[in-house]
Simulated assay, not measured.
Amino acid sequence: MQPPPIVTGIVRAADLVLAALEAFLVFVLAAMIVLVFGNVVLRYGFDSGITVTDEVSRMMFVWIAFAGAIAVSRRHQQLGVDFVVAALPVLPRRIVHLLGNLAILFCCWVLVSGAWGQMQLNWINTAPVSGLPTALTYAAPWLGGIGIGCVAFANALGAAFGYTAGAMASGEEDHGA
């Protein structure tokens, strides 16, 4: 069954968002490498250092983890054991994918609501060295939960309406480059 043009347009828009997210991941990882490597060189070579490197790189690592989780979810590269689901006929497989994505949506709702509460509580708290609000760290799981929830919602729609076996990615599952 071929999806309607609006669905293919949404999938193309999601692919563009994924490309922007991956560019963000590359930028943050490169900045983290430069900061940490530069700090190591300064510490051991010149007996000095950049004091904010540890705090900022820790925040960057949290952002990489949650933004990367969105990208992995969109590409369907998360760790999973699906030999039982793959052996099911088409209709039960679609039902299992629908129920699984609804469970993911519930988990994302819990993550987003908890991270939102932590963000609200921590806007006034600042990191001791950098002075950045610690709420920036909690913004990563908040955004990650929203992103993964959007992917799970699209996958649930795909499973419910039979566009795919439960994945609204453009094309086949990407097994890596």
Rank of each mutant, 00 (worst) to 15 (best):
I6L: 09
T8C: 02
A13G: 08
D15S: 05
L16S: 14
V17L: 15
V17P: 05
L18S: 12
L18F: 12
A20C: 04
E22L: 03
E22M: 01
E22D: 15
A23V: 11
F24H: 02
F24W: 15
V26Q: 01
V26G: 11
F27C: 10
M32R: 00
I33C: 08
L35M: 14
V36H: 02
N39M: 07
V41G: 01
L42D: 05
L42R: 11
G45S: 08
G45Y: 06
F46G: 06
F46Y: 14
S48A: 13
G49K: 06
T51V: 09
V52H: 00
D54K: 08
E55V: 09
S57A: 15
M59P: 03
M59T: 14
F61M: 14
F61N: 13
F61P: 02
V62Q: 09
I64D: 02
A65C: 07
A65M: 15
F66Y: 15
A67M: 13
A67P: 01
A69C: 09
I70W: 15
I70G: 07
I70C: 10
A71Y: 02
A71M: 04
S73R: 09
S73V: 04
H76Q: 12
Q77W: 07
Q77C: 05
A86W: 02
A86L: 02
A86N: 15
L88R: 10
L88P: 06
L88W: 09
P92V: 11
R93C: 03
R93A: 09
I95C: 08
V96T: 11
H97I: 00
L98N: 06
L99C: 06
L102Y: 01
A103C: 13
I104N: 08
I104Q: 12
I104E: 01
L105H: 00
F106V: 13
C107W: 08
C108H: 05
W109P: 04
L111R: 05
L111Q: 10
G114A: 04
G114D: 04
Q118I: 07
Q118W: 03
Q120Y: 11
L121T: 10
L121W: 10
N122H: 15
I124F: 03
P128E: 14
P128L: 13
V129H: 00
V129R: 12
V129K: 05
V129N: 03
S130Q: 11
G131R: 05
G131Y: 08
G131H: 12
P133F: 09
T134C: 12
T134K: 09
L136K: 05
L136N: 09
T137M: 15
A139K: 00
W142N: 01
W142T: 05
L143G: 03
G144K: 01
